[in-house]
Amino acid sequence: MQQLIFQSIIEALRAVGRFWLFIHDFLLGLREVRIWASLLPGQMRRVGVNSLPIALFISLFIGIVLALLSRYIFTGSVPMYFVGTLVGKSIMMELGPVLTGLALAGRVGANIAAELGTMRVTEQVDALETLAYDTHSYLVVPRVLAATLMFPVIVTLAIAVGLVSGWLTSITLLELSTQDFIKGLRQFYEFKDIWFGLVKSTSFGAAIAFLGCMKGLTARGGAEGVGLATTQAVVAGAAMILVLDAFWAVLLL
């Protein structure tokens, strides 16, 4: 029993050490701008632009559901223009960044972990290292930077789509006028509502890509190891999104 506990502690300390060594290698890889800069646009398209359909699809239905839910909650004593307030605040500050991040944790995190894991188990990474390529500059930095830069962009567009879908739902299904919806939307609006969501989404992108890269490059074995690394990347990415969400809420609200 004592041996098991000792082994667990040792493994935990090794995991922390690998994490910080990975960060160290990532920071060193940032120096090789010539390498990662050429790869960045392609990664931004793969991570960001190609993720737009799923992000916008999710936000579309978030807007609809929030508007209907607001009508259900506010029926009675609360003015109906608060539908706009609830839809706006919820999508801009919480549901837009978090649900989009969770969706992209599956798509982007799994994609990166599977790709790099496959490269690891098929010894492509070893080949790059043999050819004196900095694997972090070549593989990790473009993906992490692309996710970090593109997640706010994706979330911004997702928020816009969510607000439009909420507005359309309000005027078509809730008998709410456009003026009332806008009044509610503007009633408690602050610029912080927007940048708070964008700051969160930036951190979500960095965390998802970073964990995907780390899990992929540490994959061992064959296809099973790649699958395990992919699963771990998605689960760790989703958990990290929720942790960061709480962290920013405590720090900024």
């Binding site: 646009p41 931004m44 398209r45 960001g48 632009v49 962009v153 567009l157």
Partner: peptide, 9 residues
């Protein structure tokens, strides 16, 4: 494509 998306955002 990336530039267009970023500008739109």
């Amino acid at each position: 494509i990336v530039g267009f998306t970023v500008v739109i955002a």
